[in-house]
Design a protein around this nucleic acid. Sequence first.
DNA 1: GACGCCGATAGGAAAATCTTATGAAAGATC
DNA 2: GATCTTTCATAAGATTTTCCTATCGGCGTC
Lengths: 306, 306
Amino acid sequence: MKDLSMRHLRYFDALARHGHFGRAAEDCTISQPALSTQIKDLEEILGSQLVERGGRQARLTPLGEEFAGRARAILRAVDELETVIRVQGQQALGRLRLGIIPTVAPYFLPDLMTALQGRYPGIELRPREAITQKLLDDLQEGRLDAAILALPVPDPGLVALPLIEEEFVLVRPAAEADHPVPNAEGLRTMRLLLLEEGHCFREQALAFCAPSMAAPRDLIEGSSLSTLVQMVSAGIGVTLVPDMAVPVETRSARVAIQRLASPGPTRRIGMVWRKSSPIASELQDVAALVGEIMRARTIASQPPTS
Amino acid sequence: MKDLSMRHLRYFDALARHGHFGRAAEDCTISQPALSTQIKDLEEILGSQLVERGGRQARLTPLGEEFAGRARAILRAVDELETVIRVQGQQALGRLRLGIIPTVAPYFLPDLMTALQGRYPGIELRPREAITQKLLDDLQEGRLDAAILALPVPDPGLVALPLIEEEFVLVRPAAEADHPVPNAEGLRTMRLLLLEEGHCFREQALAFCAPSMAAPRDLIEGSSLSTLVQMVSAGIGVTLVPDMAVPVETRSARVAIQRLASPGPTRRIGMVWRKSSPIASELQDVAALVGEIMRARTIASQPPTS
DNA sequence: GACGCCGATAGGAAAATCTTATGAAAGATC
DNA sequence: GATCTTTCATAAGATTTTCCTATCGGCGTC
């Protein structure tokens, strides 16, 4: 047996409104027989007579009235559905769930939010700060639209657009400001403060200091760069921070900054999203915008010295 | 361009629930390609991507989620619509809009309502009292399902089933109880009280008294039989009332009842409905029931005397 | 790099829908 | 009261939509 279709509802609605097969058919821009058969179909489907065919005019039965009312409500809902989806589909970017690793978020998120709000008025921004692995998972599962993190990402199925490349700088107690700049080997002999397991920045710093995977002696962990810097200023040890963190983190701490000799440790920050993302092209734009902001901020913040 | 169809909603709902084209297709008992193309159609119709096809699994876009929610609501409404109509279609008679002329209504309506309620449990009864012309109009326009009135009805397109035939009796002041029973000619010389224009009973009475259409002298009008009888008891004149009205109207009035000589005036009460009425067969039953009641009541009420 | 899973695409078949032509019933008209 | 008109139903053929089978291509896995 056939199913109830949208057509049935639409045609019946027209018939209910006009009370006349011919005019209803005209309203639907189909022929009168077409409408007649559809109405007949409908009555068969429901197993009840909905229209009373008097020679004079077509009138609805009580059941027909009931049907017409409900049908109209459904048609309204369908119309609204179409409108809503069409309208929402228009605006390029309605919502952006953007993940950012913890060693980037504090230094760019505010500016980023402002810029995105300006570029996409009315956008619903949902930033989320998490470590790389969690970001990648969320990305894969569709809980994030894009993420800003350190490249490379191993995952195929993701697109990555590099944004900036930045150096790590050495942060040591203010008292050691005029000590000589150590190299990687020298660093290994110092008390190095690092982020907890899971942070990509920790791995990158370690990779520089201890390429052989041997964890350096005297390794102390902190939960944020801010914590690490505070510990440094207390004379507990030294640490590495990314360039972008310097202005914020060393503003009020009594520490010395030393730029390491080339080739020093670096990281490349990029934005990634699913290749299959429906808003891939918009994300391309977003990435460009983010790149601009990041470059402007890092250049501006870097002292003219060195 | 094609239109949004019920199919689209159903298929998309399945896809949303399973997150998997193959399983969704199976759920809909169609092949996977069929579902794929329908979903693609849907996306084209709406001009937006609703599903994100990652190699791994199919995920809904935010727009897709919105769509799925609304689609589900619509499908629920459609399902309810079908159920309601199917169920209501089962019960033979859900509602009966029954018109009755004023010279019948007071004497039968209560019994009739009771009997119909008993015969059709849960029925919604809507009796309406009005003069013949109005009843016929309402019947034609579908505002009434059936009407009880005096036959014949000129209208083709209506079916009429005779129920009872009853005589008119003369009502005169109690003081005249032993006056001789007048014939039609004699009636014309008396002060005759009649219903207002429009009542079929008025015309029938007039037709008996004054076949030549000449209105008798001294004609006085009242708005109901009850009023007329009260006026008679006050000695203002005489009137005719149908047999069925006698028990009720003369119960507490000081009036005399005289049965006229045969062939006296009579009227035939019947029930009519549209030939095209969808509940024509039920109305046939209703008419039979009404006939039974009327006959029982009129016979029982008639004194054994003649 | 072969295999398996998943969804897209192609081509032809089946079904639903539409149109034109025609029929039948009931009012309307003369 | 016979004819004309209106109105809806039915019939037959054309068109469109929908579906199925077969096959491809991407992607992840072993």
